[in-house]
Amino acid sequence: MTTSFSAAVPDSLLDALFLPFAAGALRLPADGHALFLHARDGFRLRETAGAGWLCQQSFKPFADALQRAGRRVGEPAPDRRYPLVLLLPPRQRDEARAAFARALRHLEPGGVVLAAAANNAGAKSAEADLARLAGALRSLSKYKCRVFWATPRPETVESALLEAWLALDAPQRIEGGYLSRPGLFAWHRIDAASALLAAHLPADLAGRVADLGAGYGYLAAQVVARCPQVQAIDLYEAEARALEPARVNLAEACQASGREDMAGSVHWHDVTAGLAQRYDAIVTNPPFHQGRADLPELGRAFIASAAEALLPHGRLWLVANRHLPYEATLASRFAQVRTVAVQDGFKVIEAVRA
Rank of each mutant, 00 (worst) to 15 (best):
G258V: 12
A263I: 13
T284H: 03
P245H: 05
T284Y: 05
G274M: 08
G274H: 10
S265R: 11
V271K: 01
H269N: 01
S265P: 02
A263P: 06
D261P: 04
D261K: 15
Q255K: 08
Q255Y: 11
C254Q: 04
A276D: 11
G258H: 06
A253G: 09
N249T: 06
A281V: 14
V266N: 00
V248N: 04
M262D: 15
H269Q: 06
A276I: 06
G274K: 08
A253Q: 10
L275G: 06
V248H: 12
L250E: 04
W268C: 01
L250Q: 08
G274E: 07
Q255H: 14
P245S: 05
Q277L: 09
V271C: 00
R278I: 13
C254N: 07
E252N: 14
I282W: 11
T284W: 02
D280Q: 13
E260Q: 12
L250T: 05
G258Q: 09
R247K: 11
A256S: 13
P245T: 03
M262S: 15
G258N: 09
A273P: 07
G274P: 06
V266L: 00
D270P: 01
A263Q: 14
H267P: 05
S257V: 01
A253H: 14
Q255N: 08
E260S: 11
W268M: 09
Q277W: 10
D280P: 06
A276M: 14
L250W: 08
R259Q: 10
H269G: 00
V266S: 01
C254E: 08
A246M: 01
M262L: 15
S265V: 04
A246W: 00
L250F: 04
T272V: 05
L275K: 00
G264L: 13
T272C: 10
Q255D: 12
V271M: 00
A253Y: 12
E260F: 05
S257A: 12
A251V: 03
G264N: 14
H267F: 15
D280A: 11
I282C: 07
L275A: 00
A276S: 13
A246P: 00
A253S: 14
A281G: 15
R259G: 03
V266F: 03
W268K: 04
L250N: 07
A256R: 08
V283K: 03
V248D: 09
E260H: 07
Q277G: 08
L250H: 01
M262Y: 12
A251K: 08
R247L: 02
D280I: 04
D270H: 02
I282P: 09
G274F: 01
W268V: 07
A246E: 03
D270Y: 04
N249K: 12
V271A: 00
D261W: 12
A276K: 07
E260W: 06
A281Q: 04
M262E: 12
G264H: 15
V266T: 07
Q255R: 11
M262H: 10
I282Y: 02
V283H: 01
A281W: 10
